[in-house]
Simulated scan of single mutants.
Amino acid sequence: MLTERPENDDPQDQGGERESRRAATLSPQIRDRIALQLRSMYDSVASQPVPDRFADLIARLDANDREPG
Score class of each variant (00 low, 15 high):
15 G>Q: 13
59 A>D: 04
44 S>L: 09
67 E>C: 11
53 R>H: 14
1 M>N: 12
4 E>C: 12
8 N>G: 05
13 D>T: 14
45 V>I: 15
10 D>P: 04
10 D>G: 03
14 Q>N: 14
51 P>D: 00
50 V>G: 00
36 L>V: 09
5 R>F: 05
13 D>S: 15
41 M>R: 15
4 E>F: 12
20 S>D: 06
64 N>C: 06
42 Y>N: 07
11 P>W: 06
51 P>S: 00
43 D>M: 09
56 D>Y: 03
21 R>S: 11
11 P>F: 03
16 G>S: 14
53 R>C: 03
50 V>Y: 06
49 P>E: 01
5 R>K: 10
49 P>I: 01
32 D>E: 08
11 P>N: 05
48 Q>W: 00
42 Y>H: 11
45 V>Y: 12
51 P>M: 00
23 A>H: 12
58 I>G: 05
53 R>K: 10
8 N>Q: 10
2 L>M: 09
63 A>F: 06
33 R>I: 03
33 R>K: 07
4 E>L: 13
1 M>G: 15
54 F>C: 04
42 Y>P: 03
31 R>T: 08
28 P>N: 14
44 S>A: 13
53 R>S: 07
49 P>L: 01
44 S>E: 12
66 R>F: 07
26 L>I: 02
21 R>K: 15
28 P>Y: 07
15 G>V: 14
14 Q>R: 12
6 P>F: 08
33 R>G: 12
